[in-house]
């Protein structure tokens, strides 16, 4: 791990649907944060971000978000990222639907 670098995931919004996506290690965009690539090297993070930003017909507003390793994969650090990964708290919409449909 790069000294002083906290682990990150690459995240963005899907151009067509506008929903939250994360970049996987095998270059897919996933709607489940636990499948995202957890990046621990700063130089690699910058390369992965450039890779995301080079896909303007797929995603919008790519950025690096802090994450940590959890038992099932990356987990959010900041509460904003937690909401993005889960969906709104007033209705079971957003990612909650995706996760529920997978039986998670």
């Amino acid at each position: 791990m790069t000294r002083g670098f906290t682990p990150k995931v690459v995240t963005a919004s899907d151009l067509r649907r506008g929903d939250v996506v994360w970049l996987t290690a095998d270059d897919r965009w996933t709607r489940d944060l636990r499948e995202a690539e957890l990046i621990t090297e700063e130089a690699h993070a910058q390369l992965r971000l450039l890779h995301a930003q080079a896909q303007p017909l797929v995603v919008v507003g790519a950025y690096l978000a802090e994450a940590r390793q959890g038992p099932e994969g990356p987990e959010p650090v900041h509460f904003r990222e937690a909401f993005r990964a889960r969906g709104p708290s007033n209705y079971p919409h957003g990612k909650q639907e995706v996760l529920r449909s997978r039986g998670a």
Partner: peptide
């Protein structure tokens, strides 16, 4: 972006 905003379309946390 400025064109969609002129037509009331934002990109928010979970969706447009």
């Amino acid at each position: 972006r400025p064109l969609r905003l002129m037509n009331g379309l934002y990109l928010q946390l979970h969706a447009y």
